[in-house]
Design a protein around this nucleic acid. Structure first.
Lengths: 145, 145
DNA sequence: ATCTTCTATGTGTATTTTACATATAGGTGA
DNA sequence: TCACCTATATGTAAAATACACATAGAAGAT
């Protein structure tokens, strides 16, 4: 799933949750259960717990994250995940993919507005849809290497 | 994949291409090969031809689209697809899903900007990233029913 | 004539991803 | 003790995707 070389899939539908995980871990170390909650707050309404834990072990095997047991605090032991250098590199790559994804959504809604005008003629006189339209943030991912 | 009831998956990573297909067909009837090209223009760099044709047959079985053979024009016969009423209903539903998807991306890039500032201190003085930020288009899908 | 290339629609199947069910175990409060 | 929350994990079915290949009409080149 995480490809060794930079042939990251261009299809945005693949592994959508992955960049969010890496982004969250880039700020602070978290364990799986916390991640699950933060992802829900992000808008992921149905992350499968089992698959999330499996994914984290896979990411660790691919060395995008590292983990250690956290026995402090209450409750059962937690496996605390941190992002690695390789993980940060991948985060940047995934962010680029998500940008193209976002521009596809912009195009979708631009065309979708026209569709609504066709089907609901009164629609164009309403101001509830403000087109975010064309992508401005572009061609700069903050590379410094 | 296309669920009969309105328990459409909330996970935006599923069937990302589907709403784009329905949107394209909402404007004009197209055959598979044309769809494939329009989707590439949309940004889908790697749609699998075989799976696209299979998906279209599946959509027809689910009655979101209908098809008829088009023997006019040159070349081999084309199967011309049109959207159905049910297809339009689903398009609206998928558009709502894509909106939540878009707001997730907004949140991602908002947080990602902070990440870049941490890792590339000079970044904040540059103006190449203009935050599109918070979602404005919301809570109105043009329902008139 | 046949060869290549482009258009156009498909099938077969392996791999990957996702969904759903279930197991284990520590801790808290009724 | 029982229910509930936290926390991690496995087993497996179902769905989606990737990759290979088949068929066939038409156009233009050699």
């Amino acid at each position: 799933m995480v490809n060794n070389e930079n042939n990251q899939s261009v299809n945005p539908s693949k592994n959508f949750v992955l960049p969010f995980i890496l982004l969250l871990l880039s700020r602070v170390s978290l364990h799986g259960y916390e991640l699950s909650q933060k992802l829900q707050a992000f808008g992921f309404k149905s992350i499968d717990q089992g698959n999330l834990y499996r994914l984290l072990r896979k990411l660790e095997a691919d060395e995008l994250v590292s983990s250690e047991w956290d026995t402090t605090g209450n409750g059962p032991a937690k496996r605390k995940y941190s992002i690695t250098k390789a993980g940060i590199t991948y985060l940047k790559g995934y962010a680029n993919q998500l940008e193209t994804y976002q521009s596809m959504l912009d195009q979708f809604f631009s065309m979708y507005s026209s569709f609504l005008e066709l089907y609901i003629p009164s629609f164009s006189t309403r101001d509830s849809i403000e087109k975010k339209s064309s992508q401005k943030r572009r061609n700069d991912d903050g590379k410094e290497e």
